[in-house]
Write a protein that binds this DNA or RNA. Structure first.
Length: 562
RNA sequence: GCGCCUGUAGCUCAGUGGAUAGAGCACCGGCCUCCGGAGCCGGGUGCGCAGGUUCGAUUCCUGCCAGGCGCACCA
């Protein structure tokens, strides 16, 4: 269901193509090859009309005529019949500008209200299967700011893709195998001894956080000192298994409190147990992509344009993390995803090229793997950088963040920046319940509209049948520009999906809320004029729908009262 | 040294191969007998530097400068 803006764009493009065709038929325009791919855009400047096209300028080279001249010729053959076009002109270096009747967009309002929570759904995905893998933190600790940003970004992107017509699977890859887990187990063991009054030392590179102590304390509460007498292997397995389950449960809880739910929790250990890691090594070997060097087995990544080759099996016979990750990605593609999206921290960007190389080596299209690299997060409090260090266990966790600033502010602040940008997170601003805070600004607009409707009910009046409302009564600039903004929502969703850019939404919502506040401040919605009240209620209710839908996509609540 | 990301207003950041580059914050001044003042209205010499491609570059390419992150038989 295309919005009215897209329909208008298409109609104008069609009229333009017809005009060019006509002019060529009549020999007014010389023959040329393909019509260049022109765009019909909304000009930045209002004075340049409602829509504009660069068609004439793009055609200049092919027909060897000045753009303005071409514009005039196209214009002479243009028949915008049935369209609310009031004026067309050639301007500037050769733009063709279209001016529309100011009320052209108003018919969208009842459509918005009717579609309600589905307004803004588009079909750019055409039902393609897409997987979004995000966070995928080691289940050995708590979630930090990088994970939090990934969670907000990944979940919002998944929401957007879903709304844009993709079939989305959200997935968390659990790194529950390998060297780090070994270290984790030894760290737990050391704490186990310590808590039981025996000597024990957490390995230098191990996990020193207080949270591990807590976890081991719970283990002791349940099993006492029974494992002191067990063999090392048995003791470690018991401790590691217990701790991993607990950590994972805590991670899951923290994410749920952050509004993030997964479809699949995928275990790395399962890849070893099922033989998938061995299998993928066999496949790579079969394809001649592996070789031995100094006792280790290497993947010939350089054959796929990567700078360096990569070890898949160490000389001690243990596969690397990379081997498991390749197996995981093979598994993803075997599950039939058309598009596989990973959200990784900037510290993993070196991994992208070789992962794509491995995908290509396995016979899949490396472009079907899209990796979004997020830059790092810096926290500010009181104007100072909050120092964090993972090793010492001193970092702000996702739970603490949500507790300090709330879920809504946290999610909004993470999503409002593009992944490419280093994020300075101002805790004071996010926490402030004032007009400084953009989250509340948007939520406030939503609550205000709900309040208007409550007011209406209190007066014993009811919402009108919006299909019957005389929208032509909306004539004020503030009304028309708000309606115009609302009609942009479907294209906003489409663009966010196409560009994998959920950060567009906070901006759009903020602008929309601003236009509403502005309108609200200048005009009364509910008045003695029944017809005018109905028209303005249509505008207000449509605004509520768009704000609610947009906020939902970024995982922020749309409260009826604040 | 090599690779990736980033350099836009005092600060944090949007933005697009096009016609006069935007928002929030901060700062200053206005607005409530009226549906929620968490609101509204007004206030601006800025695209790191240098070349190139183009009818047109803040956007694309090259070099340089600055910051971040990588460059393990770690993950």
């Amino acid at each position: 269901m295309a919005g009215i803006v897209e329909q208008m764009r298409d109609s104008l493009a069609r009229a333009l193509r017809d005009a060019v065709h006509e002019a060529r038929q009549r020999g007014v325009l010389p023959a040329f090859g393909e019509l260049p791919e022109f765009i019909v855009e909304v000009p930045r400047e209002k004075e340049h009309g409602d829509f504009a096209t660069n068609l004439a300028m793009l055609l200049a080279r092919a027909v060897r005529m000045p753009p303005r001249k071409i514009g005039e010729l196209v214009l002479a053959h243009l028949k915008p019949a049935g369209l609310p076009v009031t004026k067309v002109e050639v301007a500037g270096p050769g733009f063709i500008n279209f001016y529309l009747r100011p009320d052209w967009v108003l018919t969208e309002l009842p459509q918005i209200i009717r579609a309600d929570e589905d307004y803004g759904r588009v079909n750019v995905g055409r039902g393609a299967k897409v997987q979004v893998e995000f966070v995928s933190a080691n289940p050995t600790g708590l979630l930090h700011m990088g994970n939090a940003r990934g969670a907000a970004l990944g979940d919002s992107l998944a929401n957007v893709l879903d709304f844009a017509g993709y079939r989305v699977t959200r997935e968390f890859y659990i790194n529950d195998a390998g060297h780090q887990i070994e270290l984790f187990g030894r760290s737990c063991e050391a704490r186990y001894y310590q808590l039981l009054g025996l000597p024990g030392e957490v390995p230098q590179e191990g996990y020193h956080g207080e949270d591990i102590v807590e976890t081991v304390r719970k283990f002791i509460a349940q099993y006492g000192d029974a494992y002191l007498r067990a063999g090392e292997k048995e003791r470690r397995e018991a401790l590691t298994g217990f701790a991993l389950r607990e950590k994972l449960a805590a991670i899951k809880k923290a994410l749920e409190d952050f509004g993030v739910y997964y479809d699949v929790w995928f275990s790395e250990a399962a890849l070893y147990e099922s033989g998938a890691v061995e299998e993928v090594i066999r496949r790579l070997r079969e394809r001649g992509c592996l070789y031995e060097h100094e006792g280790a087995l290497w993947f010939k990544a350089t054959a796929f344009g990567v700078e360096k080759d990569e070890v898949v099996v160490r000389s001690n016979g243990i596969p690397t993390y990379f081997a498991a990750d390749v197996a995981y990605h093979l598994n993803k593609f075997e599950r039939g995803f058309d598009l596989v999206i990973n959200i990784w921290g900037a510290d993993h960007h070196g991994h992208v090229a070789r992962m794509k190389g491995a995908v290509a080596a396995l016979g899949y299209n490396p472009d079907a793997l899209r990796v979004i690299i997020m830059q790092l997060v810096r926290l500010y409090r009181g104007g100072e950088i909050v120092k964090m260090s993972k090793r010492s266990g001193k970092f702000v966790t996702l739970e603490e963040l949500v507790e300090e600033v709330g879920k809504d502010a946290a999610r909004y602040f993470f999503v409002m920046r593009s992944a490419d940008s280093h994020l300075d997170f101002d805790l004071d601003l996010a926490r402030s319940q004032s007009n400084e805070n953009p989250v509340y600004y948007i939520q406030y607009a939503h609550a205000r509209i709900c309040s208007i409707i409550r007011q209406l009910n209190d007066l014993g009046r009811r919402l009108p049948d919006f299909a019957q409302v005389d929208l032509s009564l909306l004539k004020e600039e503030a009304e028309l520009s708000l309606a115009r903004k609302l009609a942009d929502f479907p294209e906003e969703v489409a663009t966010a999906a196409r560009d994998l850019a959920p950060h567009r939404l906070p901006r759009y919502l903020h602008e929309t809320a601003g236009l509403f506040h502005s309108f609200y401040n200048s005009y009364r919605v509910i008045s003695d004029d029944e017809a005018l009240s109905s028209a303005r209620l249509a505008l207000a209710v449509a605004t509520r729908v768009v704000l609610a839908n947009g906020l939902r996509l970024i995982g922020v609540d749309a409260p009826e009262r604040m």
